[in-house]
Design a protein around this nucleic acid. Sequence first.
DNA 1: TCATTTGTGTAATATTATTACGTAACATAT
DNA 2: ATATGTTACGTAATAATATTACACAAATGA
Lengths: 141, 141
Amino acid sequence: MATAELKLTKNQRLVLDLLCSSDAPMSAYSILDQLRSEGLRAPLQVYRALDKLIGLGVVHRLESMNAFVACAHPSCHSVEMVGFAICETCGKALEFADNDIAEILSGWASANGFAAKSTSIEIKGTCASCQQAAESASGAE
Amino acid sequence: MATAELKLTKNQRLVLDLLCSSDAPMSAYSILDQLRSEGLRAPLQVYRALDKLIGLGVVHRLESMNAFVACAHPSCHSVEMVGFAICETCGKALEFADNDIAEILSGWASANGFAAKSTSIEIKGTCASCQQAAESASGAE
DNA sequence: TCATTTGTGTAATATTATTACGTAACATAT
DNA sequence: ATATGTTACGTAATAATATTACACAAATGA
């Protein structure tokens, strides 16, 4: 986790550390619940910290889930193109990046006069391990 | 609009026709408000119709906006890969499709053992005409 | 120091989406 | 035609997600 050197406020640090320690994306309200013991009381405190962390590029928002996840590559703070493969079974999100896609998209944007600020790519489906689990379960029936 | 031949129920038809006549994505609740005069009363009626229409591929959900839009290509009912460029100024969404991206993504998926069901790509930014409007406004200040 | 920006805490409220329940319409296979 | 399964409908209540408004405090910088 290369986020230690970031200068963050207490609330921002709490939220980021929690997301880093989670193995799956979390909703704002489950973040809040986890941090009540640390003194957080209201949704806004979480949303404000998330806004800042997203701005810094160390947290991403999964649009299709209303959930948030720590960036898998905290050293490269590129907010430009981020992709996630989200498993609908276990809820985990695999982050990926692809330069070719980024180039195609920016090509499309400039061809259409669209000034792109950020791009999100989200693939929904089933991850490898959940597929295997499903197979062995159906085989064992 | 090549959706006339689709066999839809009354509620589904109402929602689809409204979305087709709208020049921008609509939220479920604004759809509901528009259709109160037609007899719709509860959110669930809208959400059910939307679920069905999305399943048919004639409506898409904009994940980052919690909004819904009629498919720009109602004849090609491919739910596989859909992309939108969403203007944060005027709220309009430009739909696009790109085979190269679809292939890269499915390549990534198979390389990672991920069984993809659906993909959404959403670019946020400013569309050409809103950029021009902003330029002339700042020039006139 | 003064002004500015950034962050904080609290309360209230707005927006989006779902669960639970019972009924009605429709297809279709006997 | 009628029993059966499936799909859709309507209503009410509630859950989940997100924002607005207001007042105050801490850090930043001229």
